[in-house]
Simulated assay, not measured.
Amino acid sequence: MTVSSAGVLLRPENAAEDSRTRARKRARLPDLRRWISPLALILLWQLASSSGVLPPEKLSSPLTVLQSGIDTARSGELGDAFAVSVGRVAIGFLLGAAVAMLLGIAAGLSRWGDVLIDPPVQMLRTLPFLGLIPLFILWFGIGEAPKIVLVALGVAFPLYLNVHSGIRNVDDQIIEATTALGFTRTERLWHVVLPAAVPQPLVGLRQSLGIAWLALIVGETVNADAGLGYLINNAREFLRTDVIVVGLIVYAILGLATDALVRLIERRALRWRA
């Protein structure tokens, strides 16, 4: 028997349950110790800038970067660039993900699909897609299309590989069990194959979003007239390292935010694994 904080006697099993509840609550809270090293690095950065070890033309101090971020946000310049970049990633991601899902499912479910689709995709995957920028400019001009196609291409390959692999690696014994239970092909696909394959496409989704932001950074620094990449490129011309760092921080925050969103979806979608 134990006594709770309210003075009520608890049975051992109730106390164990209470301790498990507290442990789950602690697990949900962020671990503040993970902030120690980032804050220490920012402090060292500020000290190096204040002492003159790190000159401002090489890298502005954190306080200067913070002030520049506030100024560009107030002027609306940062907000406009943010909206343009997010729009490009959203369109490119939707296009790339749709193509990757269709090709991955077709190649994963069908032998003929695997024979006809997988070889050319594997050949194209080995190309350095960032090196295709000059070709995209020749094909699509210098407008929005090359940037969106670059993002879509970066998204498509990792997502395709994970969708294809997830479907192909479904346990054969589960498939045999559904056959013995009299499942139709559609029921087997909808209730067994696709749910069992979900974990790997979610991994591919996280990889794809990371590559999408990388592709956008490169695309926006080439013949762009708007967006975060244009903001960074324009700041480089005037040696504004503070604005450059602001743009890079926004890119990093967007990447972390999209990754956290996918992890949230993963926890919701894969609750059955627990």
Rank of each mutant, 00 (worst) to 15 (best):
L44Y: 08
L135I: 15
P146T: 08
M101L: 11
V163M: 13
I142T: 06
F129Y: 12
L189E: 05
P201H: 09
V193R: 02
E220I: 03
L248Q: 12
A260K: 12
K147S: 13
M123Y: 07
N169V: 00
T126N: 15
D18R: 15
R34P: 02
F183H: 09
L254Q: 09
L239N: 13
S4P: 03
L216G: 00
R24P: 08
F136I: 06
R28D: 01
R33Q: 07
R268A: 00
I253K: 07
P30A: 01
L194Q: 08
A106R: 01
H164R: 12
A156W: 10
I70W: 13
S4Q: 07
R111L: 10
Y160Q: 13
G87I: 10
P38N: 10
V155R: 05
S208I: 10
D259P: 00
V198N: 07
A107N: 08
L116H: 05
G113M: 12
D225A: 05
D18I: 11
V8A: 15
N14D: 15
L261Y: 06
Q200N: 15
T186W: 07
A252V: 04
L161I: 12
Q46S: 13
G182P: 12
A16C: 10
L124G: 14
E176H: 13
R188I: 05
S75R: 04
D31A: 09
Y160F: 15
K25F: 04
R111H: 06
W272Y: 06
D225M: 03
R74F: 14
L161F: 07
L94E: 02
E187G: 11
L39A: 14
A224P: 07
L59S: 05
V65D: 11
I133R: 05
M101Y: 00
A90P: 03
A100C: 02
L216D: 04
R88Y: 11
R26K: 10
R263A: 06
A197M: 01
I211L: 13
S37C: 08
T178L: 02
I91E: 14
I244G: 08
F183T: 06
V155M: 10
Y251V: 11
L95N: 03
S50D: 14
V151E: 11
S50R: 14
P128H: 13
G141P: 00
L78T: 13
E187S: 14
F93M: 13
S208H: 10
A197S: 12
V53Q: 01
F238P: 02
H164I: 06
S4T: 11
L159K: 00
T72N: 00
D225K: 09
L63D: 11
D171A: 10
R26C: 02
A98N: 02
V149C: 13
A48M: 12
I142K: 01
A212N: 05
W190M: 10
S49M: 13
G182F: 10
V203F: 06
G247Q: 09
V246F: 09
N169A: 10
A73N: 07
L39T: 12
L59P: 04
V155W: 09
F140Y: 09
P120Q: 03
L59I: 09
S68L: 02
V99S: 11
Y230R: 14
D18S: 15
L216S: 04
G229E: 07
T64F: 09
V170Y: 02
A156R: 08
Q207Y: 12
A260P: 06
L228C: 05
R20M: 06
R188Y: 02
A269L: 08
G108S: 02
E77P: 04
R263V: 04
T72I: 02
R11Q: 14
T72P: 04
T241A: 07
V53N: 03
L124V: 11
